[in-house]
């Protein structure tokens, strides 16, 4: 049984068909990146897994169960961080644990662990507006990781960060994915980010939104041990350049269709 399954999923907004006939099976602990032109329904697809939106055709299942509502088994990391501005870093990270009724001592231990892991030491009692964008997104990542969800959904999580911070965060995400493998659905506009992070890349087309091609990166990644290298080293590898060009051409052909 796959972690996430889309069965002939379609979504209409009135007469407008946003997504048509999307089928995809995401394996347990697999990192999937979704790329596609704007308006191809990437975010809608993700929101259907989160239970924030629902298909008008077909169905979406997580661990075999049809998604009917949002739940802490499917945490989302948003592009705009979406931290509670009136809560400290510690309280924001512990938010999901409070919701699920985790005991205070256990919560403290887990939150402390993630504060350390995300290099947020010394900022535990700061408010989000006192932190840089990169640190705020670390808090958001910690908030999602700490509740130990089956599925992590990331909607362009590094889209609002500057280029340098983005690179650092991408490396951290690779480290996180290596140390605590999770099923991840990662939406991005960046082809490089997709090739660097994902096991498989889903390239979407639009009008209506659909899957055009799925590219497997996992074999190259494991055989060349990308996860042991820094992002700049990986980006110089011929295999990386080759994959990046391939994904970029596919994406470009979807955009030229307009």
């Amino acid at each position: 049984m796959s972690a996430i399954e889309f069965h002939n999923v379609g979504r209409k907004f009135g007469a407008y068909e946003a997504i048509a006939d999307v089928s995809l099976a995401v394996r347990d602990k697999e990192f999937i990146a979704i790329v596609g032109p704007s308006g191809c329904g990437k975010t809608t697809l993700m929101r259907m897994v989160a239970g924030l939106e629902f298909p008008t055709e077909g169905r979406v299942t997580v661990n075999g169960r049809v998604v009917r509502a949002p739940g802490p088994d499917r945490a989302v990391v948003f592009q705009q961080f979406a931290l509670l501005p009136w809560r400290t870093v510690r309280e924001n990270i512990g938010f999901g644990l409070t919701c699920t009724g985790t005991a205070a001592s256990e919560k403290r231990k887990l939150v402390d662990h993630y504060i350390k892991m995300m290099h947020l030491d010394g900022h535990a009692d700061s408010y989000p507006h006192q932190l840089s964008g990169g640190m705020q997104q670390r808090v958001a990542l910690a908030r999602s990781y700490v509740i130990d969800p089956d599925v992590l959904l990331m909607d362009e999580p590094f889209g609002a960060l500057d280029a340098q911070t983005r690179t650092v965060m991408q490396e951290e995400l690779v480290r996180l994915a290596r140390d605590n493998p999770r099923t991840v659905l990662f939406i991005t506009h960046s082809v490089e980010e997709a090739v660097y992070l994902a096991d498989r890349i889903v390239v979407m087309g639009k009008k209506p939104g659909c899957i055009r091609e799925i590219i497997d990166v996992s074999d190259v990644r494991t055989s060349e041990a990308w996860q042991e290298l820094g992002i700049d080293e990986v980006m110089d590898l011929p295999s990386f350049v080759h994959l990046r060009t391939r994904v970029w051409r596919l994406l470009r052909s979807q955009m030229d269709d307009e």
Partner: peptide, 13 residues
């Protein structure tokens, strides 16, 4: 902010 509400819901609120 609707995203804040969504973020709370997906973390179990």
């Amino acid at each position: 902010d609707k995203t804040l509400i969504a973020a709370a819901r997906v973390h179990g609120a």
